[in-house]
Nucleic acid binder design. Structure first.
Lengths: 339, 339
DNA sequence: TTCAGGAGTGTTACCGTTCCCAAACGCGGC
DNA sequence: GCCGCGTTTGGGAACGGTAACACTCCTGAA
């Protein structure tokens, strides 16, 4: 075998180029005061030795790992996964590596443990994809020498900078679309009561109904998944006065569609349905789902920008502490005027 | 403000405990030769100073970062995202942090760049979630001092250790289920031709048909998404002899279901449909989808185990270089005997 | 001619660990 | 009482970078 590889270090490069290691350091850090000729000689030496700098050594002295930490929850779902993707993409171009620390539940303990784990690995900043108050609060309790940003959450007055979409506006968009089609009111299948995002969507829906003078049907907040949509859909299907349903996300909408179908109520002829998220295949539901599109990847990118700005100089406050992205209505085949 | 925090280092702990830094090091590394009383004194000092060791310094000298790298592709999809989740979970309990490097396409260049990026950050090993030959080949071209494992791919004789599911067996399961219901043959909507997993599913499907003496209909490999399922579904819907369709994944199946529905062909009464993957909401399709379940998280966990074993001692070859997980048929409402 | 100042380079210290080796200590056997 | 040996402890030297500072040139103004 003998796949000996005497990994080249800075001294080797320096020796080969006939300069001091400090000059090599200056070259890789693009320090201006290096003669062009010297620089080239060093670069050549680096090339021929296949040199790459030891980031651990650099981190040790600079206290910057050029690594960002992400705290994630249920990142198997499309939304969180896309945010992760967006963050990683932006981080890469900004010269950062991304490390992940997932939490199984959103209690204080696991979140703090995750922060701690990332901190030991000297991450320069943390983005939390876990939009519940418990998480942002835990973030606040984290050591203050580390920069944190939360993405996808809600809450106005959080002390932690946040990137979020305007859930209320999205819900209004959906509700107004249905009202404009001529529905007398719009029912809502809400997300879990303890998620701010679900609350904001409820608020937006309620606002739109009130503004139009429409009745506000009761809601029964449950879960984000298709099953809870199915269960609530069965209830709604039994009520002949229901002609329009706004679902807190696309998965719930999928369950509602199935319940309506099984009850023999045609969509969109008898009942219109709107979702939220615009998952990859929502356009292939039966019927293709009208929904509110969230640009998750954009959310991820924005959160990274926000984090980097805060890291650069927290006092500058270049961008506001809370960034809001506006969602967009995508009209497909699941909505129509009432008969 | 003045949130000064003179982070405690090993020397501080040593001083407080009245020992040398070396003894502190022995305590945190659980070296046996430390007197019980001394150990306790040191632990107490660590506690009171809120000491945590500087991993960069440790990495510098041990050349082990206790970080694992993951190369991912399209990790917004449920499958890859779940594998990532499974890997992270297992890595955490094994004491590793996970860093991710995503690639936008599977050419050699981006993959090698990803390897390089991870290597600079001194990861101890790499798991590639990107099951195409181009990737595993690139992995082989990577510097040999780093351990690599591929997950979710196919290929028997790869030089890179692999964890995969038995796609052929899964496809056979699906096909045999349909044949057992009484269908004369089974049509297949395949995945992209250049994915080994798609090829294996084709092979399994073909095997099952041949074994039963059934005709083997032609296939038109396309993509993994609902759209391509929809397009192919429209073609199949026009052919009245089609009574059973096996789809290469659940998303394709969703598209096929929509095409059949639009063509007025009832599922499962007129046509049976089977998917592959068992995505979270497949049970709420119209009708609920019979499918082949892949345990993605398990795949992730296994790949981590394999990697750790190889890192511990490549010669031992504790477990075989290629681990195969068996999928499972989940029967729901989209399959029935032909009329 | 002298001197200030900046560009280009080298010298040395230091970041916080772990590793290597030696020293101090305790203990049983001669 | 002394020696050999194993346990416990400490003192340096790495590890591979960056930061601070000093030193040489060279230029241009006084």
């Amino acid at each position: 075998m003998a796949s000996k590889k005497p990994v080249a270090v800075m001294r080797d490069v320096a020796k080969l180029a006939g300069v001091s290691h400090q000059t090599v350091s200056r070259v890789i850090n693009e320090h201006p005061n290096v003669r062009q000729e010297t620089r080239e000689r060093v670069l050549e030496a680096m090339e021929s030795l296949d040199y790459r700098r030891n980031l651990a050594a650099r981190t040790l002295v600079t206290r910057q790992s050029h690594t960002l930490g992400i705290i994630g929850f249920e990142t198997t779902l499309f939304g969180p996964a896309s945010m992760l993707y967006g963050i990683e993409d932006a981080a890469r171009t900004a010269g950062y590596l991304v490390s992940i620390a997932m939490v199984r539940n959103l209690d204080r303990r696991p979140v703090l443990e995750a922060v701690d784990r990332l901190r030991q690995h000297a991450v320069d900043g943390i983005i939390a994809i876990a939009p519940k108050p418990a998480v942002t609060n835990s973030l606040l309790a984290a050591p203050s020498d580390i920069y944190c940003v939360a993405v996808g959450g809600a809450g106005e007055a959080e002390a932690v900078p946040t990137v979020r979409i305007d859930n209320a506006a999205g819900a209004r968009l959906a509700t107004e679309h249905l009202l404009a089609l001529g529905h007398r009111t719009v029912h809502h299948v809400a997300g879990p009561a303890d998620w701010p995002e679900a609350q904001e969507r409820i608020a937006g829906w309620r606002d739109a109904l009130s503004a139009a003078g429409a009745a506000v049907p009761p809601i029964v907040p449950q879960s984000w998944n298709a099953e809870s949509g199915y269960l609530q859909g069965q209830r709604l299907a039994r009520d002949p006065s229901v002609t329009a349903v706004f679902c807190a996300n696309d998965r719930i909408a999928l369950g509602v569609l199935r319940a309506l179908h099984e009850a023999g109520r045609k969509v969109p002829e008898e009942v219109s349905v709107v979702g939220f998220d615009d998952m990859p295949d929502s356009g292939y539901f039966l019927p293709p789902l009208t929904t509110v599109r969230q640009d998750f990847a954009e959310l991820g990118r924005r959160s990274l920008t926000l984090l980097l700005e805060h890291m650069a100089g927290p006092d500058d406050a270049v961008s506001p502490a809370h960034v809001t992205v506006t969602p967009e209505l995508v009209v497909r085949g699941s909505t129509a005027p009432p008969r």
